[in-house]
Write a protein that binds this DNA or RNA. Structure first.
Lengths: 249, 249
DNA sequence: CGGTTTATTGATTCCCGTCAAGCAAGGTGG
DNA sequence: CCACCTTGCTTGACGGGAATCAATAAACCG
């Protein structure tokens, strides 16, 4: 049995992130969104953005705050969740470089329906929803791409409703691990490492379960050699078996 | 105690729906979407739509079908759900006149992730996703409005994830009844009647519960005079009490 | 009026949440 | 580098909320 219990995840967050103009341009240019634009257009749009660095665990906004900004992850990992009474949060999503969040539409000013917290140190670009709206008016193709992003998320959210509604805890954990692996997985010689600091509690908040239940299930999986896991990290050792666990009979 | 057990919902579905050009124009003109357009533009867009009548319980499309159309409800009620193994469906939404469904984006051709079924006889307008995409390119304001529709739905879906994850069955049923009342409620002298044929099973599929559990909870509510309900219908008698049941302490 | 679908109700089971104690990993400061 | 503390993970015992199974009743339909 594997006795490597040291976390394989880099948690370095010492360096300050400056979110330089260069970084901003690079990030924006890489977004699927802006691929159609030429350099001049990109620069013009870039000017409308602000940038801000966040440290680990810092909050970007809170559920209920008046929402008039749209954000883009330039660097780092961001956690979106709905805060519940008594620690009963629900984790909605973990975002990566290039992902949008905040207020994507121009509903006048509304309030955020979730809380955004930096899982690592991060660099975040932001733009007022109004400016974003103006950009969308100007470049219809961007609006359509935003629409596609939103539809993807809606489909994912509905899929999750389905899973929570119909699957037992073990299978909910499996699909969650598979999703995380797909989004955050890094191939290593020890399997697919989920490259973000994920706790049992985070997993519980993703699967509508308790940290204790998650722990029990994960321990099983470890004993069967399907995964390896420790404090704030998970690695998938046997994707095939994991997938088989949620196949329809 | 009220002994009216006959369904107060009109189930007449005898007449054929013709989805005439007139009806189509009227519906399209009423959509929040198209309010900015003038009569000429509206007519041009109208030409790109087809219309089709469906009878009660008829399917419009199935989850997994190749999806290349976007639909608009012109008349009737449409149920969207994700089919599960062994009757374990999950009901995603009940749509009304003016609501959009199907493939809103232009992802090439993908597949539908839900099944659409007519709850009543209905008239449905449809347009190829490609044509819809062209319209969006032409009228950026429409794309932005679509984006707002999608964001609303995403927020609603996330809210639902939160509710299923954190609330016990009774409260899940309460929030579902409140939502239904808001969307489908008709004021009558007997309270707010939910104007659609909703079964215990439908409610179960909306609340991640079983029909039996729903029945037990609903019976309680009836005994307390909060609601009245029978075969395929529900009426909310005391909104205030219902709301109080899900308030945060 | 029989046949079908939907709703109710009870008895039983069990998955999973709750509570509580102990353990391991990581960080810090002397 | 080790004692100490904090935070996160594990493990067990227990109980309860809701699913399951099953049988009856009510509403609707041709």
């Amino acid at each position: 049995m594997n006795k490597r219990r040291k976390s394989p995840i880099q948690m370095i967050s010492t360096e300050e992130h400056h979110c330089s103009i260069d970084l901003r341009l690079k990030i924006l240019g890489r977004l699927p969104f802006f691929t159609d634009l030429n350099q001049t257009q990109l620069k013009a749009i870039n000017q409308r953005f602000n940038s801000l660095g966040f440290t680990k665990d810092e909050y970007i906004y809170f559920s209920g705050d008046t929402s008039e900004r749209m954000f883009v992850v330039a660097e780092g990992k961001i956690k979106l969740f709905q805060p519940g009474f008594e620690k009963r949060n629900v984790l909605l999503n973990i975002l990566l470089e290039g992902d949008l969040f905040g207020n994507l539409t121009v509903f006048g000013s509304s309030t955020y329906t979730d809380t955004a917290q930096s899982l690592t140190s991060s660099c975040i670009l932001s733009i007022s929803s109004q400016s974003f709206g103006e950009i969308l008016e100007e470049y219809p193709s961007l609006a359509i791409k935003s629409l596609q992003v939103m539809e993807k998320r809606l489909i994912a959210a509905n899929k999750r409703v389905f899973e929570i509604s119909t699957l037992p805890v073990e299978q909910r954990i499996v699909v969650t691990l598979l999703t995380l692996g797909e989004k955050l997985g890094k191939k290593t010689d020890q399997g697919v490492l989920i490259d973000a600091p994920i706790s049992r509690e985070d997993l519980a908040e993703m699967t509508a379960a308790t940290p204790e239940s998650v722990s029990r299930v994960m321990k099983q999986f470890q004993n069967n050699g399907i995964i390896d896991s420790g404090r704030l990290w998970v690695s998938i050792l046997d994707l095939a078996v994991l997938r088989k666990l949620v196949e329809i009979e």
